[in-house]
């Protein structure tokens, strides 16, 4: 039977489930052990979304999701470059994680109850808050969602967006025609060529496509407002608590570092700080790393090699995308980013 690559990936899960040996795995951190032996973190990322994960002309990956892969590699392996990126489609991503093809899924993935439970996954703290947004050609004369009745909408299959727009249009008793294509290039291309009136996805993904994929960015506009809650976070397989904890606390390191004023530039000086919180975080005092199965300097390396959350945000959403931080600000500045106590 001729199948697409994606289906093969999915078949691989079925195959793995069928042939994997039945005995239960060892208790002492199988993922951490495998990562250390391999010397590489396998990280599932988006195939290409500006600001989250995109490979440049040299094949070097950049983006907010990518930086969390790098942060984990810095903490676990001591080098933020020891990451193997696996670009995954929206449909392949969960099977890839479930079957062990990747160690972590940092791929604009919305945390939902079903994914957390029925899919056998766990999610770290949200690394980005966004919501479903719509981009349209200015020429169609639509300025709000109510103007979109009867429109053809390009959307990724298997995404939360797909369900959000179904609910949104149904609640407004409006008709629409979904066009679902899994390949990011094909989907955005279909919108740009005029197959769809609307491109729907997490709103944060839209400015990149407007800036870089449109022949004339000024012909397009992003409809103001977001139409769902999309907390994006890093996913891991359920059942490996230690690895889950590492993902969780590496994320909190980036939040706390920003709150406490530690950046990649001043992290060495900050080691001399009198603040006990900073001393614990950077491994000057205490043994936080050992509790996660890591060394003393794990958090120091995250900040040194990747940066605090503010630095990560600015390097990916600064110019030319210029996406305002909004609710992705620290809680101290009116946002939702809240680092948990590291003690």
């Amino acid at each position: 039977m001729r199948q697409t690559i994606k289906s093969l990936a999915v078949l691989a899960v079925a195959g793995t489930a069928a042939f994997a040996a039945a005995p239960a795995v060892a208790d002492d951190g199988p993922t951490l052990k495998a990562v250390k032996e391999r010397g590489e973190v396998l990280c599932g990322v988006h195939q290409g979304r500006y600001g989250f994960a995109i490979a440049d002309s040299q094949g070097k990956w950049k983006g907010l999701d990518v930086d969390f892969c790098r942060a984990v590699a810095a903490a676990v392996l001591g080098d933020s470059e020891k990451v193997k990126y696996m670009p995954l489609g929206s449909v392949q991503r969960f099977p890839a994680l479930q079957s062990g093809e990747v160690d972590m899924l940092s791929r604009t993935t919305t945390i939902t109850l079903t994914r957390d439970s029925a899919l056998g996954l766990n999610f770290g703290p949200p690394t980005f808050y966004t919501g479903t947004g719509f981009m349209v050609r200015k020429s169609i004369g639509a300025t709000k969602v109510d103007d979109l009745a009867g429109a053809a909408v390009c959307v990724f299959p298997g995404s939360t967006t797909e369900k959000n727009i179904a609910a949104l249009f149904a609640s407004k008793k409006m008709d629409y025609k979904p066009v679902v294509i899994e390949s990011s290039k094909q989907l955005v291309g279909a919108y740009m060529s005029g197959r769809c009136d609307v491109l729907a996805m997490d709103q944060a993904g839209l400015p990149g496509h407007q800036q870089f994929d449109a022949s004339n960015p000024a012909d397009h506009m992003i409809i103001p407002g977001v139409y769902s809650k999309e907390p994006l976070g890093v996913g891991v397989r359920a059942g490996d608590d230690q690895w889950f904890d590492i993902i969780k606390w590496v994320t909190h390191v980036t939040f706390n570092a920003e709150e406490w004023g530690i950046s990649s530039k001043n992290v060495d000086e900050m080691k001399a700080s009198n603040d006990i919180n900073i001393q614990r975080l950077l491994g000057v005092k205490g043994d936080l790393g050992a509790k996660l199965g890591l060394d003393k300097e794990w958090a120091y390396r995250v900040v040194k090699q990747v940066g605090n959350y503010g630095e990560i945000y600015d390097s990916n959403w600064g110019p030319p995308l210029n996406l305002e931080r909004g609710i992705n600000e620290l809680w101290t500045k009116g946002g939702l980013m809240y680092g948990f106590p590291m003690k």
């Binding site: 289906s7 999915v10 449909v91 969960f94 479930q98 079903t114 029925a118 299959p157 298997g158 899994e182």
Partner: peptide
Amino acid sequence: NTTLNQTGQSVEA
């Protein structure tokens, strides 16, 4: 594919 992704039940789908 959409079904298996929304439900997570790849084997059944």
